[in-house]
């Protein structure tokens, strides 16, 4: 496929100059003879110039695709070039080498282009998928994001991933040598020595200890100063100092009750139930007395229904000694009864 371009440009229309030399370049392959020279020279004299770009099938010609003729008035051309951006564009186009593709000739190149396109498409798809997956984990506000920002500890999250079990004697971190004389643990090699303790030696030690430490398990704890009950072996008494910081010898919980509490599998715990029942009874008593309009729970009255604990018995006696002002403020923080009755 052949193509010939001829470009005529006039000096008045802002000619882009490629070759700044003042000499006129004439090339014999364009077939210009002397008569043309005169013509050209005349044209030059008249201050006009012509640019002819020729392209043909000849590849050698294609490489030298333009002939630039230039007037000697360089200053004017420079000025024009600065003024007109279109001229700049034209210049850049003219600097580009002209390529002529013959589709019949370049089959391999075409396949290569298609292959490159496919590879690029696949690459784009993969990269987009990877970016989407990555952005999923770094979603702001997600749990993973919280872990990343240090707000949440990954190891203390609700359900951690189960660890794969490794035999502590047979894993990559622990290697016993074939001769059983050394072991390598966590990269350090240790010498091994066999344990020589025999059963006989163990029993010797046990006898020694049984002679050295005569001890009976204490079955009763008494404060210093208390008397020993008659049916108790004095050896099994454990004397507790009166100011023992953490322990008390006297239990304020009924033993059977405590045992039942431990064995309870279902239902409401005993104390919660007792308190609930106490409130319920109080309500029923109020309903009977038709005092529902003035629903006030008196802690002194509710105390009667609480569980029978020694501590409560003590506190009960203490409460009784208090002035009756406690009765005025009830547990719900309501106003005193007297005030309510005064209000219309």
């Amino acid at each position: 496929m052949a193509s010939i371009w001829t470009v005529h440009l006039h000096a008045s229309s802002s000619f882009p100059l490629r070759n700044c030399s003042n000499e006129l370049q004439l090339r014999p392959e364009f077939g210009l003879d002397c008569s043309n020279c005169t013509f050209w020279s005349r044209k030059v004299k008249s201050g006009k110039f012509v640019v002819r770009a020729v392209s043909s099938d000849d590849e050698r010609r294609l490489q030298n695709d333009a002939i630039v003729t230039q007037n000697s008035e360089k200053i004017n051309a420079e000025k024009n070039r600065q003024l007109n951006p279109v001229a700049k564009l034209q210049e850049s186009i003219s600097t580009l080498p002209s390529f002529v593709f013959s589709t019949g000739k370049f089959k391999f190149g075409g396949n290569l282009t298609i292959g490159l396109c496919i590879v690029a498409t696949i690459l784009v798809v993969v990269v987009r998928g990877y970016a989407a997956r990555k952005s999923r984990y770094s979603r702001p506000g997600s749990v993973a994001d919280l872990v990343r920002r240090g707000q949440l500890r990954s190891d203390r999250r609700g359900i951690s991933t189960p660890l794969k079990y490794e035999d502590p004697f047979n894993n990559p971190m622990v290697k016993v040598s074939q001769s059983n004389s050394t072991v390598e643990m966590c990269g350090k090699v240790y010498r091994l020595a066999p344990v020589t303790l025999t059963d006989e030696q163990q029993s010797v030690h046990q006898r020694r200890r049984s002679r050295a430490y005569q001890w009976k398990r204490p079955t009763i704890f008494l404060k210093e100063g208390e008397s020993i009950p008659p049916d108790v072996d004095p050896d099994t008494v454990r004397w507790i100092p009166a100011n023992h910081p953490f322990a008390t010898t006297s239990s304020d919980i009924d033993e059977d009750l405590a045992q039942n509490n431990v064995y309870q599998k279902h239902g409401v715990p005993f104390r919660i139930q007792a308190e609930h029942e106490a409130l319920q009874k109080k309500l029923e008593a109020l309903q009977i007395d038709q005092k529902l309009n003035k629903l006030v729970i008196d802690p002194a009255a509710a105390r009667d229904f609480e569980r029978p604990l020694k501590s409560n018995m003590k506190s009960e006696s203490q409460v009784e000694h208090r002035p009756t002002s406690d009765h005025v403020n009830n547990s719900f923080g309501n106003k005193p009864q007297s005030e309510e009755t005064q209000n219309p």
Binding site: M185, V189, Y190, L192, P194
Partner: peptide, 14 residues
């Protein structure tokens, strides 16, 4: 079970 051998000292790694 109980231990049959104990680590004594560190050896330079071969």
């Amino acid at each position: 079970d109980s231990m049959k051998a104990v680590m004594m000292e560190e050896e330079p790694k071969k």
